[in-house]
Design a protein around this nucleic acid. Sequence first.
DNA 1: ATATTAAGCGGACCGCAGTCCGTTTAGAAT
DNA 2: ATTCTAAACGGACTGCGGTCCGCTTAATAT
Lengths: 203, 203
Amino acid sequence: MSLIPIRPGQPFGTQPERSDAARNRERLLQAARDLVAEHGVDAVTMDMLACRADVGKGTVFRRFGSRAGLMMTLLSDAEAEFQREFIFGPPPLGPGAPPLERLIAFGEARIKYVEEYGELARAAAEHSPQNRHDAPPVVLWHRHIEMLLREAGLDRDPWLLALSLGATLDPERILHFLRAHGVAPARVAASWRELVTRLLKDC
Amino acid sequence: MSLIPIRPGQPFGTQPERSDAARNRERLLQAARDLVAEHGVDAVTMDMLACRADVGKGTVFRRFGSRAGLMMTLLSDAEAEFQREFIFGPPPLGPGAPPLERLIAFGEARIKYVEEYGELARAAAEHSPQNRHDAPPVVLWHRHIEMLLREAGLDRDPWLLALSLGATLDPERILHFLRAHGVAPARVAASWRELVTRLLKDC
DNA sequence: ATATTAAGCGGACCGCAGTCCGTTTAGAAT
DNA sequence: ATTCTAAACGGACTGCGGTCCGCTTAATAT
């Protein structure tokens, strides 16, 4: 039932992790959530986290690989929920509605997602085009958009077109307008609606 | 005649810079160009540059403010040329052609620009949404797109729509597909053409 | 020439992400 | 219980971007 493993807590083919590792993972996640709540995503450093969780710095990086990896882990629940909604949920976001309406709903849902988790999402993509463009959830979003474009009859390189539309919904970008320019979320959503509506007209 | 001051060599209202400062600026720029040519943008560090230019590290940061600032300076000639072309140059990129054709030409020119200067452009925008979205050249591109959209009769929030189209042409994004996914530039250009053509149909 | 002064300078220093490697320990095998 | 070993651990260390601040010097005034 789980979709794409966003950040496998314990990798697939291996035996269950050692008890001390499990304990440390819980300690780290709890400490990370606390620190984010207290100081905000951007102020949380890896040293701070190691210290708060009373764990060596090496352990933090062994667990999460990088700061971006940590942020992905913190996002994974919300991300899984989002995926569930647009894949299995009720229309118009989920299956059952015509592709244009699903696209519109997808954009709106993404914008809400950014409102809530934007800082985390941005931090999860920082410092690596790879993270930004090829992370499993991102690829899934793109495949979803591509599928909807095809359903709508757009057959001219829907993959690239889907990537372009995806760029439009990039968390850092959306967040920047929301926060730094004070653009209302509803306005962003309206613009997205306008964009995809025009794009799919007469297909 | 100069357009937007991309990175003022010597700020506006002040008297000409001191001779030693001028000498150091030339030394730094030359060293930076050499280092980029030798090792590639991503491998050039600020310490390396200071050392090569035989200058203190503080001087490097006094001059350019940050690594991104240095990269913007290195880009400024190419950027000014690009601006000249789409503002004053011959159609279809410059004025004289219908807006759709100018938009198409704009995207194609940007893609060529990324092919040539993409690494620099990416480095110039790194580590700051501000640099990425609100740098003077970026704002100018967006205004240009917005103007073309208006000319084409698209009157529903052309500013946000222009930003979305701009996101589509983001250097990091384009560069990522070109380099990491081996997508041909012509294919990216075709996708852009498709996107804006559909967008402006019946306006 | 000399004095004045603000711009310029340099490099020690800081905080951070990420690495390395010698040490510890959980858990299995005996 | 003892031994064994691979996984996990921790914290010193590196490299980088960026800052700070006491020193130097170019340009100007006298």
